[in-house]
């Protein structure tokens, strides 16, 4: 543990309505993320997970609570974390190479260096030969890999992934999981993933936060005790099945689930 990267303390968020007053969407969330860790937040659809990400990304101001990155408060200040949204949001008028260097470009960094670095990474992201293609000629999986490369080239210390594989078919998704884990290890990324797929959460994560339906809080945290270097086979182990049972029990709202299993 070389220090906490992201610290979220007692975060509350909500929106004002004329008749019901303040409707809470996030109701007291605490989360600590260490350097190079991968954690997942799993919960039912519409539970406020995306609200939480918008707060961390600085796009939305919370009602109360703190978000600190490397010890500095970043509430309401965008640009400190890299945010990969559900859709790939590649710009159709830019070639793949021009798309992936958007982060450095908007930050006013030297473009020559950024383009060289991106070009060197295209092969690792399965995009070699497509640097001058437009996104419309790429498959769904390739587009998501391009979006992830763009996210990583933003050079932020924390990466938020909001259901990045939600729109892909099951086979492609499984391949993408293995590949993403490889990328996270190789590039030493600190990542938070939002998902509603227990297998995806367990396979990828060091810890899984299970969220309750709206307003969102954490029903429990499941530490994943799978080997650091894990292949696809790990999903067949009893250990994996145990974790899945824990996660599903927490999702169902069974409060004693964690204690019963330990």
């Amino acid at each position: 543990m070389d220090g906490v990267r992201l610290q979220i303390s007692n975060l509350h968020s909500g929106y004002a309505t004329p008749d019901r007053g303040l409707v809470p969407t996030v109701d007291g969330v605490d989360l600590a993320l260490n350097r190079n860790e991968f954690v997942s937040i799993i919960g039912p659809s519409g539970c406020g997970k995306s609200t939480l990400f918008n707060v961390i990304a600085g796009l939305l101001s919370p009602t109360s609570g703190e978000v600190a990155l490397d010890g500095k408060a970043i509430v309401g200040r965008p640009g400190h974390v890299a945010y990969m949204m559900q859709r790939d949001l590649l710009l159709p008028w830019r070639t793949i190479l021009d798309n992936v260097v958007l982060g450095p470009e908007l930050a006013g960094k030297p473009m020559e260096a950024a383009r060289n670095r991106a070009a060197a990474l295209l092969r690792r992201f399965g995009l070699e030969g497509y640097e001058n293609s437009y996104p419309s000629s790429l498959s769904g999986g390739m587009r998501q890999r391009a979006a992830l490369l763009r996210t990583i080239l933003c050079d932020r210390s924390v990466v938020l992934l909001d259901e990045p594989f939600g729109a892909l078919d099951a086979l492609t998704r499984a391949t993408m999981h293995e590949w993403l884990l490889g990328i996270q290890r190789e590039f030493q990324q600190t990542m938070i993933l939002i998902t509603h797929d227990p297998d995806e959460a367990i396979y990828l994560s060091d810890r899984v936060y299970v969220a309750t339906p709206r307003p969102m809080r954490f029903a429990g945290i499941v530490p994943i005790e799978l080997p650091y270097d894990r292949g696809r086979d790990v999903t067949m182990t009893p250990q994996f099945a145990d974790h899945k049972r824990q996660v599903l029990a927490l999702l169902r709202g069974d409060k004693g689930a964690l204690d019963a299993l330990h």
Binding site: N54, A57, G58, L59, P78, G79, V81, A82, Y83, M85, R87, L89, L91, W93, L102, G103, E105, L106, A107, C154
Partner: peptide, 23 residues
Amino acid sequence: QFIDFFRSLNATPAQIFFKLRLP
């Protein structure tokens, strides 16, 4: 969503206009 994405990268209003809205 594109505006949110650009804002998450701390884009200026001019960048949002010329690199996003105009194209």
